[in-house]
Design a protein around this nucleic acid. Structure first.
Lengths: 204, 204
DNA sequence: GTCTATACAAAGATAGAC
DNA sequence: GTCTATCTTTGTATAGAC
């Protein structure tokens, strides 16, 4: 006789999860405004009414996705940069490597988060908390110790710019023919190798 | 007796122009999907029906704005980079200066153009034509002559990244408190001075 | 908890009077 | 050319059956 509580099979996906997965996929591609709840329902293979049953509104559903995506994108930056036990070189290399890999697997991510940040009230609190975790004095000291005069902000901006911008501008470069779609992965993998050196050279 | 043909006073703005101006303002702030034709009509101070009378559809009106904005943003890059009479240093400095000034006056521009590029079929032809004007061999030669081994593409990407990304990520940095809204202009003006040096240092 | 059917609201487009 | 009124489509939310 089994006394186990009834357990959902790990393979089974609940309706709620199906909706979230569909929402994640469509929201990240199209953004909030251009996404239709009917499309989410169809993608999830459920009745439209269920979306409102589970999440009450499109906005509510969106909030879940955008917060999740924000964490994915910016969650790592604070802990890495603020760790006093990691050298400057290691910080740059870790950030560039992690971001390149993350963005290769989620190409729409930076654009999605940045665009919704402009209009979305949900994330503001999250942004602030995240920024507080980023201990500027530690980075500043590491820069000063080495005799570098660049500001912390310019340092961060340069690392993030050079790593993230190719993904944001990909549609431009691909449609112009300057980078072929098939070459894009190689292009950013190659940059991943160079960016740490380039950034270090901006410090001198 | 006057034989002059009836002439519109230069100060008067036609209804068509009023609609275009309003559309430009709202589309660039909100993008295509989030913009309502009713808002455009209101901003233009005209009746909603007139919008369709002049432009037949929202899409048609949008096409006009996005093409205009694309030219504003990327029109200068080809001629500057492809001119064999301009040195590398001058090219970088000209691009960075012009872009910083342009974007300070049109902060939403890069985000708007890049976001609509992802979903918009109108601009593709324009992008291609623009890319053809960008003569890569000339830049490549200028880099080689000087003994620089960086690829043309990485060179362009680095200049544009460092100059444009601060504007794209401004909402993030401002809402995080890392940059105050009032300081932003100073921040990018300061970067404008440094970026040419930083870029030259990535070439060695 | 899940679904069907439907009410309600918003937005784009149009007809027709002036 | 401009306006009012209205139609159509599409998206959001709810009521109520099972």
């Amino acid at each position: 006789m089994y006394i186990c509580s009834p357990k959902i099979n790990e393979m089974e996906i609940t309706t709620e999860e199906k909706i979230i997965n569909a929402a994640r996929s469509i929201f990240t591609q199209k953004g909030f405004s251009a996404t239709r709840t009917r499309d989410i329902a169809e993608e999830a293979g459920i009745n439209l009414a269920l979306l409102n049953y589970y999440f009450r509104s499109k906005k509510n559903l969106f909030r879940i996705i955008i917060e999740e995506k924000f964490d994915e994108l910016f969650g790592m930056i604070g802990p890495i940069l603020s760790d006093p036990n990691i050298t400057l070189e290691e910080k740059i290399e870790t950030l560039v490597t992690n971001y390149t890999n993350l963005l290769l697997a989620n190409e729409d991510l930076p654009f999605f988060v940045l665009s919704e940040l402009k209009t979305n009230e949900f994330i503001l609190e999250k942004v602030k908390r995240n920024a507080q975790m980023l201990s500027q004095p530690i980075i500043e000291n590491q820069l000063k110790e080495r005799g570098f005069t660049i500001s912390t902000l310019n340092f961060i901006m340069n690392v993030v710019s050079m790593t993230m911008f190719p993904f944001i501008s990909k549609p431009l470069f691909v449609s112009s023919g300057l980078v072929k779609e098939e070459q894009f992965t190689n292009f950013v993998m190659d940059r991943k190798q160079h960016i740490p050196t380039w950034v270090m050279n901006t410090l001198k």
